[in-house]
């Protein structure tokens, strides 16, 4: 590069040629690696997704990916439409809709906490959560995956839509340990309030966006096998 001007001994044509040849070799290597791994990677991602969804919706047998937009819902394709919210529909062996799963993300103590939650359309409640990724303090923040009292919050967490179907009737809210009174509140883990709040915020943000788009079109998901 800059040295080249200082030492004109090597003709630039030679340098360009060498770099050109190298780039070609490298290009071929990269593209073939990409092509060869494309399928296994996709398969891996699918397995990981299924595992995450099955964990929050027990008894589910298959998963389908959808995008919800203001225009309705459609199976997720290669191109994600503007403003789309991704969600997953889980079906049981017979092909009946078992539940809906979606991802929410909130800023935790150390980094973003991403959770997968299960939504039961019939009862309009959240029926379970699983952590997709987090870097919270071991022993404190990671109690959100193990603390039985905390997980009990998500047996039937109320996410009913308001009458106009534009937002949740009651925003999901994390309250301090031991003061949960309403079905839409999450009782925080004592000592891990920041992480508990991250879960609540993540679910609320995602549900507020997804459910108004999803609920009017729920019938389209039935028998999706």
């Amino acid at each position: 590069m800059s040295e080249a001007t200082l030492q004109p001994a090597t003709p630039s044509a030679a340098m360009i040629r060498t770099l050109g040849i190298l780039s070609t070799i490298c290009g071929v290597l990269i593209v073939s690696a990409y092509q060869i791994t494309l399928e296994p990677v996709a398969a891996n991602k699918k397995i990981a997704l299924e595992r995450a969804v099955f964990k929050v919706i027990p008894g589910a047998h298959s998963v389908k990916e959808f995008d919800a937009t203001s225009a309705g819902i459609q199976p997720a394709g290669a191109i994600v439409p503007e403003g789309a919210v991704k969600f997953y529909a889980a079906y049981d062996q017979a092909g009946a809709l078992k539940g809906i799963a979606a991802e929410g993300a909130g800023k935790g103590y150390a980094d973003t906490v991403r959770v997968m939650y299960a939504y039961d359309p019939a009862r309009q409640v959240i029926t379970g959560i699983g952590v997709v990724s987090m870097r919270e303090t071991p022993g404190i923040g990671d109690k959100i995956t193990t603390d039985p009292a905390f997980l009990k919050n998500f047996v039937a967490l109320d996410v009913k839509l308001a009458a106009d179907l534009k937002a949740l009737a009651n925003a999901v809210k994390t309250v301090k340990h031991g003061s949960k009174q309403n079905a839409w509140e999450i009782d925080a883990i004592s000592g891990a309030t920041v992480t508990s709040k991250a879960v609540g915020k993540g679910i609320n943000a995602s549900a507020q966006k997804l459910l108004p788009l999803l609920v009017p079109h729920l019938d389209k998901l039935q028998g999706g096998k």
Binding site: K107, G108, Y109, A110, T193, V194, K197, A198
Partner: peptide
């Protein structure tokens, strides 16, 4: 500083 800037 942990937690600073998490907007908690």
């Amino acid at each position: 500083f942990a937690g600073l800037g998490s907007g908690g």
